[in-house]
Amino acid sequence: MNKKGPLYALFLSLVLLLPGCSSLTVLNPKGPAARTLSDTIILSILVMLGVLAVVYILYIWVLVKYRAKKSNEGYVPPHEEGNVWLEATWIAIPILIVAFLSVVTVKTTSAVENVAADYKDQKPLVIYASSSNWKWHFSYPEEGIETVNYVNIPVHRAVEFRLYSFGTITSFWVPQLGGQKYAMSDMITTLHLSADTVGSFIGKNANFSGKGFAHMEFEALSMTDKDYQDWIKEVKETASPLTEDEFKGLLAMEHVGRKTYTSTHLSFSPPPGDHGDHMSNDGKDTDIDNGNTDHQEHKDIHPSPEPSSETEFDGEPHPEVDQPLPSSPVEEHTHHSD
């Protein structure tokens, strides 16, 4: 069957491209999370190539051997009901493959959802990344700095991004540092990233968010600790504070270039609650507790929110931003899936 010709050529080119091809950004990781994911992807491609090989060999064999030709004219194919052992084989082997990949999935998912193993002993640098229209705001609560459309991080440092949105759902993604995660208006999501090398990486919103979506990119720059400290010092000397009015103006704009400020918007426009420490608008405690995965499975056992050891910005009521009641659909998932 010559129709598979182009298919094979393409597939072969993929296989050849895989190792060391720097243009495949996702497979060219520069941080522990991205490396875990890249390894997972390559492993799964190899397993799947094995599956494809079995199917293709069988396929070509039956087509070549059993096609109608002059020599088998008058051949009457037999009646076959099936074969228990054969069918059991192609049920059992896929189950084993799926089981293997499930183990890999659970392990790697939990690896990238937490601080990378090499960085466990560090206190992570917290950066709030929030989106509005088609731009990204980065707030450094510890340094008291805010930037727009670029983020600088020290190399070899655990960084904890806390994501939320001033509008549509966006997805924060720096492919060479790790996987993406949604930023939404009524809860904070957390993404752990670290860079192993100094360098500039493309970051973007991956989730379609309207007209300006295609241009919603930012630069993630990892720099040596000294450069990072210098940068902070320089910002403190040259930039000015972010006022509430200025921030409102920023939010209203569709696109802006890079901006730098010496204070964050978190003080006058606090982020929505974390998964774990939601407060309802009327100030009463509600029993919504669904962020931490440990809690999800035992929701009825300890329904009240656990106190969190957070920065001063978390869990504050936020009457002026039009934030809806905090909760997430997450717990509904667990209801359905139970």
Partner: peptide
């Protein structure tokens, strides 16, 4: 990527991959 955590994602990963078995 909505941030529902490891347990929920793992559950849905496994049910999704399980579909490969009957399809195979």
């Amino acid at each position: 990527t909505m941030g529902q955590g490891v347990m929920v994602n793992s559950f849905f990963s496994i049910t999704t991959m399980a579909i490969a078995v009957p399809t195979g």
